[in-house]
Computed example of a mutant assay.
Amino acid sequence: MTVAEAEARPRRTPPRRDAATSQWGTSGLFTQTVALTGRSLRPYMNAGVIIVTFVEPLVMLLMFAGVLKVLGEAPGMSKEMAYIDGLAPAIMIITAVAAGAQAGNGLINDLRNEVITRFHTLPINRFSVLLARSFADAARSLYQLISVAVLAALIFGFAPPGGILGVLGAILMSLLVGWSMSWIFIMMAALLRNGDVLRMITTLLTFPLLFASNAFVPPESMPTGLRVIAQGNPISYANDAVRSMVAGNVTVTELATTVAVCLALVCVCAPISKRSFRVL
């Protein structure tokens, strides 16, 4: 090849990478998860959403603590602690699980808006998208859990024997339960990819889990069939652990069992979610 031929041959230019692509390509899982969590949290920063998010636990407190206060006299109810002191932890669990259920709907919305398609074109760890979805709804749940504790104290005189440390422990435990439950709905969203079907399954799953438990009355006061369900319901064990927190008499066994079940749930659902999300 002569010098003239070499100069005449067009030179290949490497493909250009825009700044966003380069930035994502050099970041790690932690950085990507933080960035995507912030993105998922932005819709929750709307003033209307903040107000509605605050009103939800207020409505539950007014409804359950006001209407069901008479249940404090039901057989088997503890006489050592006021009914609101046992009800507020249960509402924390209900609030956290309900917020976790929204994680699947959030992922479905991203799929519907083709946001996930854009993510698939970026050099990012796709698992960070799922992690961010779960953390964003957990952050929203944290705001609601704090609201439950404050409103219960201001309106209904929530003053558990465990004090502020017990309440903080109850909030953290409820947050862990809700975050682990969110992976069930993220997994179903990645598998089903249908918002209508997911919403029906969410209702069918959460309603018996939350209400066929010891949240409002002890299982001993229930009919035999419902008592068996409540005693085997994992939410009942979560309620017991959180109530023990606010009562200031939680045991290591209760803590270890609740944390172990939550982590086991994540270890089962997260890999399935990751695998299903990879083939979208």
Rank of each mutant, 00 (worst) to 15 (best):
A4H: 06
A6P: 08
A6Q: 12
R9V: 12
P15C: 10
A20G: 03
G25F: 01
S27N: 08
T31H: 09
Q32S: 14
A35V: 05
S40R: 10
P43R: 09
P43Y: 07
P43E: 03
Y44N: 04
A47W: 05
V49P: 03
I51L: 05
V52K: 05
V52H: 04
T53V: 05
V55N: 00
L62G: 09
M63Q: 13
G72E: 13
G72F: 13
A74K: 12
P75E: 14
P75M: 14
K79W: 00
A82F: 02
I84C: 07
P89L: 11
P89S: 11
I93D: 00
I93V: 09
T95S: 10
A98Q: 12
I108Q: 01
D110I: 14
T117C: 06
T117H: 08
R118P: 03
F127V: 12
R133Q: 02
A138T: 15
S141A: 03
L142P: 09
Q144N: 04
L151S: 05
A159K: 15
P160A: 03
P160N: 04
P161K: 14
I164L: 15
V167R: 02
G169D: 10
A170G: 09
I171M: 02
L175T: 15
L175Q: 11
L176I: 14
V177C: 00
S182A: 09
F185C: 07
F185E: 09
M187R: 15
M188T: 08
A189L: 11
R199D: 09
M200A: 13
F211P: 10
S213I: 11
N214Q: 11
P218F: 07
P219N: 00
P223T: 01
T224M: 08
G225K: 07
R227G: 12
Q231V: 15
G232K: 10
N233T: 00
I235H: 01
A238G: 06
N239F: 02
V242G: 10
S244H: 05
V246M: 05
A247R: 14
G248F: 01
T258S: 14
V261T: 09
A270H: 04
K274E: 04
R275T: 07
S276H: 15
R278L: 12
